[in-house]
Write a protein that binds this DNA or RNA. Structure first.
Lengths: 361, 361
DNA sequence: CTGAAAGCGCTTACAG
DNA sequence: CTGAAAGCGCTTACAG
């Protein structure tokens, strides 16, 4: 069944069939109805490739989920509690606007080849990237080659010539979020506040560290490098970080750069014999689904993934359809979700120290 | 940049360019290398639509996530803790086999239009369906129209003429899983075992009820309809079901048809003043990520989503490429994950009854 | 081994 | 208002 068949059955030319499909104004109602009837009857839908070849848009965007792991291929995205909700939100918004979404996973640098492929072969004309490291050269190349992009979690640049300046950027308000998280602990009376950092190659990694420092500085609390331990956003790194931390320091509170690491740290804390929040307060970032089910439920900073997905999708599609390079930058606000993992302290130092004496000998 | 340009620059005809791209055997090594060099230099990738129009496969499958909600559009897939991991697993396996995946969400029956569209316009030639109700007529139509399909959670039929018999089917071993879950409770000494059912329009809903009944029967425990409450697989329904249940009955254990409902039920139990597992044991199904973080950690039945994704993807692609209707049916085994939410009881009936007297007056 | 040509199914300027 | 024709970028039988 193709437009020729439809034309023959309806007793018109293929031109006319095409005109009614594309809603041209100069088709008389009766002709239009006649053609439409045949189209419906035969479930005819024009061949997408033929239309594209004639210059119509593919109406397809890519969603590129990047999860570069240093050492293993065991870690797959399906572990990731963060990407799922965002992915489905992107699909929903895109579908609403009549766009399909092709989802592509990138675990190693060479997987970017998959993205180049669908871009150069014209399957997609735009893509949303999540999980990317800051200033990623692979994405830069793609942008320079003309791919319309929306990137989540990417530094907003001064340099006008930078490729990322041609991209839509959607970020959480990382600095402020981290600042507020730390300040929240300070207001609770904590001064020995540790930070488990995220992946420092990502904006959300280093920006949250920055917010942490800012809050300390403002409160006149000296920054101690012994209270900062590197993590990489996965649970296990939070677990290890907590052990490392308590080997050299005695914080009363921890700000973890995301919830997954906070969860890992809570496990370590439990193993070491500390109670949360009685002995150590802990706050996370992201408000993933699991956090509310923990005991104690995790206090954390939350940003609307839905809003981020919406901004990315709508602006990307706008930039595709209007054939202009929209360069909008968005910073989505973050708000505190107070639950049970943080506690006010007042001169509890002795108690904590006693505990230490006991646990660590 | 198109094949004509490449041909001109390499000093050959378009035919030859096409031959090297498609790896025809009858191209001399030097010619091949010469052309390849130009292709690489200009980042040339053949236009996917043009190739398709000439009959090449689109190498794209659809992943259709169905989440039909009766009354609201508030409930979106992004809530769903179950679809995320499966989705990324499907994408991974498909990508590995050189296939793209187009993800489509279906919240209302009319959203199936999106699926028909991409099928009839030749964007996809196969699709995987998850979250579908049993014997869904919309999917039946698609199968009959020639879409290659792999369906998750669908009854395996006797009737050879049934459309679903032309589909690949991948199920969890629902009946056995439910049977084992119930038997586990029985072996722990429970006889008053309630069941919160899933959505009875889905295979996993009614098959798990069947397994529950089977275990009771085998143990000689009479089936009581007062111990069975309807749910629909979402958390809130488990919450409500638990309240409803304890209004009319006094079970010492609950088998919830999935983990989300078990979580809802645990909340209700807590509110009603029952301790898990001291007062009431509870077991779920699915082993979603959250379950291991609960306190008490949820005992549940687990099947490998990865394996299911792999079976669906590999067989679907095989059936697409070999142009045959593969009709394989798979039942993925389920295994018990013992955690902390179930407890052996021995003549505790009095205690429980006391508690009741206290709580419910 | 290689090129010229037909044709996949559309859309759209062109002519009437 | 409508049709005939060109052409989008490929692939592949055909001829040499």
């Amino acid at each position: 069944m193709n437009s020729k068949d439809i034309a023959r059955i309806a007793g018109v030319s293929r031109s006319t069939v095409s005109r009614v499909i594309n809603n041209y104004p100069n088709v008389p109602p009766e002709t239009k109805e006649k053609v439409l009837k045949v189209i419906r009857e035969y479930n005819y839908v024009p061949h997408a490739s033929a239309r594209m070849l004639r210059g119509k848009s593919s109406k397809t965007i890519g969603l590129v989920i990047v999860d570069l792991k240093k050492n293993s291929d065991i870690h797959k995205v399906y572990d990731n509690v963060y990407f799922g909700p965002f992915t489905t939100a992107v699909i929903d918004f895109a579908n609403q606007l009549g766009y399909n979404v092709l989802v592509i996973t990138v675990y190693k640098t060479r997987d970017y080849k998959k993205v180049r492929e669908v871009f150069y072969n014209k399957t997609i004309n735009g893509a949303i990237f999540i999980g990317v490291k800051n200033d990623d050269p692979d994405i830069k190349n793609l942008i320079e080659a003309g791919l319309k992009t929306a990137v989540i979690d990417q530094e907003i640049r001064e340099d006008e010539d930078d490729a990322f300046n041609k991209s839509i950027i959607v970020n959480m308000d990382n600095v402020n979020g981290a600042y507020e998280a730390t300040k929240y602990l300070i207001n609770l009376g904590h001064t020995e506040i540790a930070h488990i950092t995220g992946d420092m190659e990502k904006l959300s990694g280093f920006a949250r560290l920055e917010g942490y420092k800012k809050a300390l500085k403002e409160a006149g609390i000296p920054f101690k490098s012994s209270l900062v331990v590197k993590g990489d956003f996965v649970e296990e790194s939070g677990y290890k970080a907590a052990y490392k931390l308590f080997k050299k320091a005695k914080p009363t509170a921890i700000f973890a750069s995301n919830d997954q690491m906070a969860i890992g740290a809570m496990h370590a804390l439990e193993e070491m014999g500390f109670k949360v929040p009685e002995d150590v307060s802990i706050i996370g970032f992201d408000d993933i689904t699991i956090s509310r089910y923990l005991k104690p439920a995790l206090t954390t900073m939350s940003a609307s993934l839905l809003q981020m997905a919406e901004l990315a999708v709508e602006n990307l599609i706008k930039s595709i359809e209007e054939e202009i390079a929209i360069t909008a930058k968005f910073v989505v606000p973050v708000k505190l979700v107070e639950r049970e993992s943080c506690k006010r302290i007042e001169m509890q130092r002795e108690k904590i120290n006693d505990k230490y004496a006991l646990t660590m000998k």
